[in-house]
Design a protein around this nucleic acid. Sequence first.
DNA 1: TTCGTAAAGGAGAATCATTCTCCAACTATG
DNA 2: CATAGTTGGAGAATGATTCTCCTTTACGAA
Lengths: 152, 152
Amino acid sequence: MPTVETPVESMVTAFRERCRASGLALTHQRELIYRAIVSSKHHPSPELIFDEVRRQTPSISLATVYKNIHTFLEAGLLREVSPHHGSLRLEANLAEHHHLVCTRCKAIVDLDESELEPIHLSRKLRAGYRILRYTVEFQGLCPACTDALKTT
Amino acid sequence: MPTVETPVESMVTAFRERCRASGLALTHQRELIYRAIVSSKHHPSPELIFDEVRRQTPSISLATVYKNIHTFLEAGLLREVSPHHGSLRLEANLAEHHHLVCTRCKAIVDLDESELEPIHLSRKLRAGYRILRYTVEFQGLCPACTDALKTT
DNA sequence: TTCGTAAAGGAGAATCATTCTCCAACTATG
DNA sequence: CATAGTTGGAGAATGATTCTCCTTTACGAA
Ligand SMILES: [Mn+2]
Ligand SMILES: [Mn+2]
Ligand SMILES: [Zn+2]
Ligand SMILES: [Zn+2]
């Protein structure tokens, strides 16, 4: 009978191909790191990924985890959950509103609900969860960054 | 003729009242910090707020800025732009999807578009911006944290 | 107004996340 | 298997945030 690949295995297979296509060496560490992320349902942090891969290969370095995360992000193999993690960003606008986030310069501008087409979302999601609010994050490039990338 | 308060001034007035109501001392530094945030259109970081308030009161300490930001967040006078800033969070799921974020334990779970009522958004927003994608972030409490808060 | 006390501020050390440097080990290729 | 170019490991360096400890301030009571 034919072997059925699990979703994780098929993603790891695709990962190997994409590494080869991008000229990235297929190291033991890289596969462990990718596998740890793709196997996790919890949007792990670098530290968590490190703890996980260390169980398989105790000699791995945290710097290797960070370096490969960035390599994979650049290659489009991974995605950051938030376009503006880094340092704390604050606001005093307590009204419900949304955000435009420039992925290049990290500028965040407000978008009042009235500036959008109507949004229809059900808040009755996932029994057991208590949803308090939602915001829509639009990711893209601000005018200045759009120009800067054109000129380059 | 009656003085018309600017939006910033009226928010500072409300701020003073809410401090009094919450038993928070009205210090010079607190008002400067709040005023810097409410005057900014750019969702500032603690460091930026520090640079701003330092222009008025050069002796202020960065620790004071951080302490008051947390005080104001707890009092509901400010809001964090992202419920999960802090450390980098990653995922290998490249399909368009949304997130449920527990504001207490910071767990993030995926929400496929099929799990929601249909979303209708215009992507033709803010001329000059190049919108690449959007995600909806639902903030609330996961089942475990809902229980934990009930019991407490 | 003046005082006393609790709350808050300042300075710098400590901690945590992330990046860098430099050298050793490994992968890919012929 | 030899070689060249990548990549990995260890720990120092950097940046963000928190903590400690002591001084100063706000504010209610006198
Ligand atoms: Mn905003
Ligand atoms: Mn996700
Ligand atoms: Zn930009
Ligand atoms: Zn939770």
